[in-house]
Design a protein around this nucleic acid. Structure first.
Lengths: 210, 210, 210, 210
DNA sequence: TATGAATGAGGCTTCATTCAT
DNA sequence: TATGAATGAAGCCTCATTCAT
């Protein structure tokens, strides 16, 4: 349809502008004209490509979320990885997503994933699917005896995903230092925290003085 | 003047109605008249007691959040508890808050804590304080050698709180079974998951046949 | 009804508060509660004494305006005065009214006399009566040959009153210096200007070296 | 884009409708929808062109007032005219303004020039400038000995302008006959009254038998 | 495709007035 | 008289969406 030669893909242009504006002002606090202005196109053109303001957000979410679902699926398919390694890759994927497209991830988290009464409700099934895929990984670990039995895989998946999303929130709101180095360390640390636990293991670690 | 015997405290009545309506329709999708209707009072009375729709939400949040901050502080002050026991009480307090006032907690989480661009931004400092108080508990554990050194207390606090909030989200959105029994079990399990880790400890647990 | 001994006349208190508030904020930009606050009485008491916000203004205007009408009538009745002397006394009366009760006069001028579409329309007849009484004085002067024939008394009255009201406006808005001395001088000068004219009379004044 | 042939300039259309409505109902007693209805456009279009109801009034005032300021400046620049002739032209200009656009002039006088607490305050400087320009003309007359020394030019300007505005008020409120003939005669008469004075000059007019 | 003028329902807020005590 | 809580109509302004060009 476009993307050809020098011609800019206006549709993509508008979508990217929406990411910027939604991230900066919030979905409810921006106007469609803000998006058009940011994209440098006329007001009405937004409605030529999209049915509504909401559709833009839906599209942004679905596009990105599917990529994540696919990624988790692919990670889980890697038979040579242990469950913990798989979770490490999942965490790595999500954190990298934020590293590369912080605005988009902010929009998805703030306006969809954590917005119970509007878009969250609408995309609940898609969101649930992500938790399920993580739960599948955990469930395998429970079956092979690596993970505890008394913590259900659904429960564990929620804790794992919740921890990661909270880290992203921390970076978004400047509650945690957001440097490349921190992002990188976080990938392993979050897995270490959730899988290994915050506590020093009785045996593995002899004893730590102060 | 209020709260006494038969006399109804209209201000409280309106605030409670706001909880119900905000939880059901979402802050942005409800009208002030919905709150008035729910409270059974005239439209204008809402503005007799509150400056704006936003002020109601602010008040609901601040009132409740402070209670939580105080609770965490009191829990931390109990010198006879281990860090893990303290975290267990914190988790218990938050989960009980949801059990007793699910609508209010839903509003706080969905409309404030997780709403980056509107009220989240406004109350960032108050929110941060909660994370800090949890971090203080973790830090003590790191100092006494119970908790791992390589995971900073701030990072750990975010994981811990994120996991809990995600559980609440799961209950709110029916992604997790929300029964009294589940609530009760969750209190210990979330601590078990985050502190002890999802993995079976090398020594403590001999071997589990999947 | 009141005004007795130490007991304050609440009705008068409210009316005086209305003068202050109307003058400061303008009739349309103040609330009934502002008047009550200024008077130091409860909200509802205003409605105990007055039917409406408008009634207060009406009463303030009518009370004062009638005093002026009476004054002009009395001045005109002084048979020993020349028309010019009568106009001098009229100007003196109006200017003194402003000197003694600037707020009240401001309210009357700004909110009634010059407010065509609200109270001005309502009290048009009363306002007209003032112009008429001045016109009566002028008419006598025209009859005795003192004043010009080609300028009708109605026309002349409007010029005369307009000039005075404009001076008051000037003082109200700080466009003219508002000192006791200026007020005093203005009384004669405005009559000198309107009756004698701004121009130097051909004969009376020999010649002035610019 | 506007003003051309058949194409109607909606912005102008709305502004003209505002003149009609403001003049008829008064600024405070009309709704924005009244303006839209009068213009025959949709409600929202008013806000497409103007930021607020007030902005319309401001624009109407500023546009017209500047024309008057320019006109007075041009009149004063005519070196071949005597001060009295200049004032005659100023009076003529203002009265003609009312003749040609009575509604607009009514709005300007009633809602701005004479509205101390709202728009009058806002445009005080612009209003003052008009008085100043008239004062400049008077001052020249005082310097060349034509006008009296004891009446300051600022004072004289206020009397002159006040008289004219009062005449306009008289026509607006039907206190004075408003015919073409009267308008025409008023131009000279108001100057005759203020400059020449209402009184018959001692010498110039021998004696008039009442 | 592209523009931006035009539409109009929706909703917050104000505030004069009433009323129960 | 005195209080101030309670009422609810009114109106400004916003902004998503449509439409003519």
């Amino acid at each position: 349809m476009s993307g050809r030669s020098g011609a800019v893909d206006k549709r993509r242009l508008i979508l990217d502008a929406a990411i910027t504006v939604f991230a900066r002002q919030g979905f409810h606090h921006c106007r469609v004209s803000d998006v058009a202005d940011q994209a440098g196109v006329a007001y009405g053109l937004v409605y030529h490509y999209f049915d509504s303001k909401e559709q833009m957000l839906n599209e942004l979410f679905l596009e990105r979320w599917q990529i994540m679902l696919d990624a988790i699926g692919e990670i889980d398919a890697k038979t040579d990885l242990t469950p913990r390694q798989k979770l490490r890759e999942v965490a790595g994927f999500i954190i990298d997503s934020y590293r590369h497209e912080p605005d988009l991830m902010k929009v998805i988290i703030v306006e969809v994933t954590r917005a119970a009464n509007s878009f969250g409700r609408l995309h609940l099934e898609k969101i649930r699917e992500a938790y399920n895929r993580i739960a599948v990984i955990v469930e395998a670990a429970r079956r092979d005896g690596t993970f505890k039995q008394d913590i259900s895989s659904e429960f564990a998946a929620m804790c794992f995903y919740g921890a990661i999303e909270q880290l992203l929130s921390g970076w978004i709101f400047d509650l945690l230092p957001a440097t490349e180095d921190e992002f990188e360390r976080a990938k392993s640390l979050v897995v270490e925290a959730i899988c290994g636990g915050l506590e020093v293991s009785p045996s593995s670690t002899p004893a730590v003085s102060g």
